[in-house]
Design a binder for these strands. Structure first.
Length: 271
DNA sequence: CGACCCGCCTGACCGC
DNA sequence: TGCGGTCAGGCGGGTC
């Protein structure tokens, strides 16, 4: 489910409820996520959540002495429940953190590809070490990406989805960005000229920015922490549009499989 | 090192 | 209604 815009939507949705509040009871209902949820996380009882940041598709909750790393994997979701009496248990609710303002943060993840890990405040987080720059920062530029693509022969779409090259774009936004940039997903990455890389970088920024303002993309069951859907699905131009007319030229959108992932493009507009 | 492939899970959906 | 097959928004690790 969650790519960068969805994770950003979650961050914005949970922060007002959690930042400044102190952690109360923590319940680990099922620790068997991608990595086991550490039992030690229960020792955070009484600690204040001082800040919540997002890096790529990761959320980081800071206390004075620790940080909690959360990844939503493919199907993870976080919801905020007003107070304990409003809590309705759902299947796949694996982790609940109650706050001293009565709010509960519930982590829900049917496929359990996500994870929740605990680090000392000053520790380095291995998952974050090899990530590309934030895509909405100035560091993520045409110069950066053009240099990085040098010598890379993989299809450009696979590279866009590789978090060491471009952060935050999963399958949906990689497809949409390449369409917006007019670049065929199978092009070898090092075959793009500087102008095309510039268009691609601009497209990635535009697609992610727009999706964030729409609260992400709700395809199956993604909702914001308040229970609202994300509205970017209405603006998808190629993803999931196999056979539908291209918004620009009416040519039917094609679907191929690239790197084991569904890939959608307009054969006319994307060269 | 780079490119590719697989496994991890469950649920939804489709065709028969 | 049931059943098997397919697919799904991510990531790390293994192999060649």
């Amino acid at each position: 489910m969650p790519e960068l815009p969805e994770v950003e939507t979650v961050r914005a949705g949970i922060s007002p409820h959690l930042v400044g509040a102190k952690i109360g009871a923590i319940e680990i209902r099922n620790d068997r996520l991608r990595y086991p949820i550490p039992k030690a996380i229960e020792s955070l009882y009484g600690a204040e959540i001082m800040a919540i940041e997002r890096r790529a598709k990761y959320l980081i909750l800071y206390t004075e002495k620790h940080k909690i790393l959360i990844h939503l994997g493919m199907s993870g979701a976080i919801r905020i429940v007003e107070n304990e009496s409003d809590l309705e248990w759902q299947k796949h609710d694996h982790f609940i953190m109650q706050m001293d303002n009565d709010r509960l943060m519930v982590y829900h993840d049917p496929r359990r590809f996500g994870f929740i890990l605990l680090y000392d405040r000053e520790a380095t987080i291995p998952f974050l070490e090899k990530l590309a720059p934030e895509p909405l920062s100035d560091t993520f530029s045409a110069d950066y990406l053009f240099a990085k693509l040098n010598g890379r022969t993989r299809p450009i779409k696979s590279v866009v989805m590789d978090q060491a090259f471009v952060v935050g774009a999963g399958n949906i936004y990689a497809n949409e960005s390449l369409f917006m940039a007019g670049i065929h997903p199978e092009r070898p990455a090092n075959n793009l000229n500087r102008e095309e890389v510039k268009r691609l970088v601009s497209a990635i920024k535009a697609v992610l920015t727009r999706a964030i303002t729409q609260g992400g993309t709700t395809l199956k069951d993604f909702t914001t922490p308040d229970g609202h859907p994300g509205y970017f699905a209405q603006e998808l131009l190629v993803y999931g549009q196999k056979g539908q007319p291209c918004a620009l030229c009416q040519t039917p959108i094609e679907r191929i499989v690239l790197g084991n992932r569904a890939t959608y493009f307009c054969p006319q507009c994307q060269k």
